[in-house]
């Protein structure tokens, strides 16, 4: 038992020596991780809302395109989409940096999920609301903008928070196309300092510190929504 405690103490004693050296790199890497996460979530939200509206539109062509997109985005790994954009486009003359590519690729891929979440939110609002909007002479765009989407957004909020956590975790894939975020730095540090376990556990802890508050917030929102909307739905 004592022997293991000693080993554990030896393991931990590396951190005070190495942390000052890693700190600057890691903080910059966290910033990049957050930029990739926020950027691709924003792209996914825009795509998701547009696709959800397209899926529920009367136009069969729009519906078909949206279904096709969602099917592909949900069936192909995000990493494959990243590789396709980063390695597949340059031979065709389109060259992008790693970070914008990661934001675009993760956003395109997550957009399919967001579309389904928002669609479920729109379908959960009562049909009478749309009809009420029509009777007071609102256009269909106004109905979506002022009546349906604000409610749908509230209903989909907990699921969207979960998607945001997934995006945060998926941002680690950007390291594989050399975006300078947490995992790329972890890999670089582990090969220069030969301390893979130390840096990986540290980076894992950083991801947890970013993800756990989000998941607690999502749980809180879910509970609040059920107690508030419970009698209305």
């Amino acid at each position: 038992m004592m022997e293991y405690l000693d080993q554990f103490a030896a393991f931990l004693s590396v951190y005070p020596a190495k942390l000052p050296q890693w700190e600057g790199v890691l903080i910059r890497a966290i910033k990049t991780t957050l930029i990739v996460t926020a950027g691709s979530f924003a792209v996914a939200l825009v795509i998701g809302v547009l696709l959800a509206l397209a899926r529920l539109s009367k136009n069969a062509l729009l519906r078909g395109i949206a279904r096709f997109y969602i099917e592909i985005a949900r069936g192909v790994p995000a990493l494959v989409i990243l590789f396709l954009l980063y390695f597949g486009l340059p031979p065709l003359g389109i060259v992008m940096d790693a970070v914008p590519t990661a934001i675009l690729g993760l956003g395109l891929s997550t957009g399919g999920y967001v579309a389904e979440i928002i669609r479920a939110g729109i379908e959960a609002t009562h049909k009478g609301q749309r009809e009420a909007g029509l009777t007071i002479g609102m256009s269909s765009w106004q109905i979506n903008r002022y009546i349906i989407l604000p409610q749908a957004a509230r209903i989909s909020l907990p699921s969207l928070m979960n998607t945001l956590i997934t995006v945060l975790k998926d941002s680690s894939l950007a390291s594989l196309i050399t975006a300078p975020e947490l995992m790329l730095r972890a890999k670089a540090i582990s090969s220069t300092d030969f301390l893979p376990m130390h840096i990986l556990l540290l980076v894992g802890a950083i991801y947890l510190c970013l993800a756990i508050p989000l998941s607690q917030l999502s749980r809180l929102l879910e509970r609040r929504m059920f107690s508030k909307l419970g009698n209305r739905m």
């Binding site: 941002s171 390291s175 995992m183 972890a186 582990s190 893979p196 376990m197 990986l200 894992g204 991801y207």
Partner: peptide
């Protein structure tokens, strides 16, 4: 809460 990639690296390199 951990990215899959981090977990795989821990299993493989760590």
């Amino acid at each position: 809460g951990l990215p899959t990639l981090t977990l795989l690296f821990i299993c493989y390199f760590g």
